[in-house]
């Protein structure tokens, strides 16, 4: 079985052959051989040369695979998903202010048309009792405010646009 996966930094070609619990795999030409166990749903153990590696895998709402090991995680995107999620091409000269986490808009500090300097607060979002000022990514004019006070926002949502 051959699969191509993408991370934020690179693209990996993976081939693997799994018979019973014996695993032969190859990542970009580098071979791996060991035992693969699946002791509980979403949990995999790989045994290679007596070493035990534990991984937990979950798919997210975007269809990506998030692999956890220790206190770290890597997100892989199957190449077949490429293009399905359209990345917004930034319009020339315009920069969005996005919500870094889900939360609630508690204050809007600027109006459309206001001039702001880089680092100046535009929208205040509250999550888990902490108010975070979302600042202008560059100096310019506020051309759009997409949210209103009290509105719930999700992670990555565009709150305002600076030109």
């Amino acid at each position: 079985m051959k699969v191509t996966l993408e991370t934020a930094e690179s693209k990996l070609s993976i081939s693997f052959d799994l018979k019973d619990h014996s695993l032969k795999a190859n990542v970009d030409g580098k071979p791996y051989e060991g035992t693969l166990l699946n002791p509980e749903p979403n949990v995999y153990l790989v045994l290679i040369d007596g070493k035990v590696y534990e991984y937990r895998v979950f798919s997210n709402s975007e269809g990506e695979l998030v692999v956890y090991f220790g206190d770290q995680s890597i997100t892989f995107k199957p190449t077949e998903l490429r293009g399905r999620k359209q990345s917004k091409v930034a319009e020339a000269g315009k920069m969005p202010i996005t919500a870094p986490m889900p939360g609630r808009v508690v204050n809007i500090l600027r109006n459309v048309g206001d001039l702001v300097t880089e680092g100046q607060g535009v929208v205040v979002v509250e999550a888990m009792k902490m108010q975070n000022e979302m600042t202008a990514p560059k100096s310019g004019k506020v051309v759009k405010i997409n949210v209103s006070v009290g509105q719930a926002v999700s992670s990555g949502e565009v709150l305002a646009v600076i030109e």
């Binding site: 079985m1 699969v3 996966l5 991370t7 990996l12 993976i14 693997f16 799994l18 695993l23 795999a25 990542v27 970009d28 580098k30 791996y32 693969l36 979403n42 995999y44 790989v46 290679i48 590696y53 991984y55 895998v57 798919s59 695979l65 692999v67 090991f69 890597i74 892989f76």
Partner: peptide, 10 residues
């Protein structure tokens, strides 16, 4: 790389 293999298998 092992993480990638596990992702592919999953």
């Amino acid at each position: 790389e092992l993480a990638a293999i596990i992702a592919a298998i999953h």
